[in-house]
Design a protein around this nucleic acid. Sequence first.
DNA 1: ATCACATTTGACCGACCAGTCAACTCATAA
DNA 2: TTATGAGTTGACTGGTCGGTCAAATGTGAT
Lengths: 217, 217
Amino acid sequence: MSRATTSTKDRLIETARDLIWRNSYNAVSVDDICAAADVKKGSFYHFFPSKAHLALATMDSCMQEMKADYNEIFSKGRPPIERFRMMARHVFEHQSEISKELGHVCGCPFATLGSELAAKDEEIGSTIARICAEKTAYYEDCLKDLQNEGLIPASIDVKIKADEIFALVVGQLLMARIKNDLSFIEHKLEESLFNLIGIDLAHLTKVPEQGRKSVRR
Amino acid sequence: MSRATTSTKDRLIETARDLIWRNSYNAVSVDDICAAADVKKGSFYHFFPSKAHLALATMDSCMQEMKADYNEIFSKGRPPIERFRMMARHVFEHQSEISKELGHVCGCPFATLGSELAAKDEEIGSTIARICAEKTAYYEDCLKDLQNEGLIPASIDVKIKADEIFALVVGQLLMARIKNDLSFIEHKLEESLFNLIGIDLAHLTKVPEQGRKSVRR
DNA sequence: ATCACATTTGACCGACCAGTCAACTCATAA
DNA sequence: TTATGAGTTGACTGGTCGGTCAAATGTGAT
């Protein structure tokens, strides 16, 4: 009957993602999730040993989706500046979509969950820390390419800069969630990003159709 | 008996601040707070009509403390660069102190609460948004002074830049909370900050004891 | 047809949740 | 002395929490 669409387990993960992301881990009960997913509680505990394990599975699912997007955005075929630019656009578009679907700006799911649970549940805390590290790896790699192309000084520490970028994005997403307003991310995220990286975008875009593939040296 | 130290109401607010900040709003029950504050539940509801109202009172208390600190740090008697520098140091020292006291890096209390409740409780959400706006006002004012002294270009939009600074700090605090590690804030926050503002600190500090009061023009 | 096994169901548990209440203490003020 | 009202107490409520369980049902292989 219900197999036609998605499996019970997947349905639980998807529903949990929506409910927890929209509200918070502790504000959403297992009963809530079961009701929304139209799954009986016994079935829930057949697939997940605890509520926390569902949260972990939900994060895994989110991370895989994120990775698929990032692999596309940060593919080597794209000039590094374009990658960051596309990331900024993607953040807005993704958030905008989620916001329409769930009725509220939701920000970064890992940050939301991490902020709530990092001090309580060690496993979730370290999982989130690992996910964040994976995200910054994309930035770091891209920053290295910017260095190789001579667009940013070779002297800067790309690892630190990547952490800074991540913090900036996470912070702006958090503010967007609190204010329930994406306009800053829509109009200013890209600029903030290049400010932080240290690239004068206005100067670069003066040469519109040249130097796009590679501005090597 | 207990009046000797602090009033029941204040004791509840202080205890709630610690417990909620350390864990999260929904993870801490009224019973928990009452037990930790050695207050009976009936007394709790004599002073606060609901748990949410205690949270609001707690935020008020946090904000007053924050304002006292910020008024000192951002006083006009200090050169604007020193103000930001002192703020970075203050963030670390404050977090370090709290971390020792509560056993875990806690980050920004408003961000933590906001992330958890903004989508659920409108009043708390808008209160937090207002508090954040008050914080960015300090940055904005300080950025204007930097402009007046010619240390940053007059062309930059200080309002936006202030929001960027706030997002960066909040984001790094959130990461510190998740990782339970203050080392990035200890060693890199100041540098990140001036990166974002667009001031080359290394260049400035080459002139150690001069140009401290004012580097006008 | 029979078996093994995965899945589903709904009743159930004790603990805990936010919040209520009537009775009590005690200081002050008339 | 008595009346008032702020503060305190602990027992109480109805509902919800995360989690359990035995029994029922479906499914695929032999």
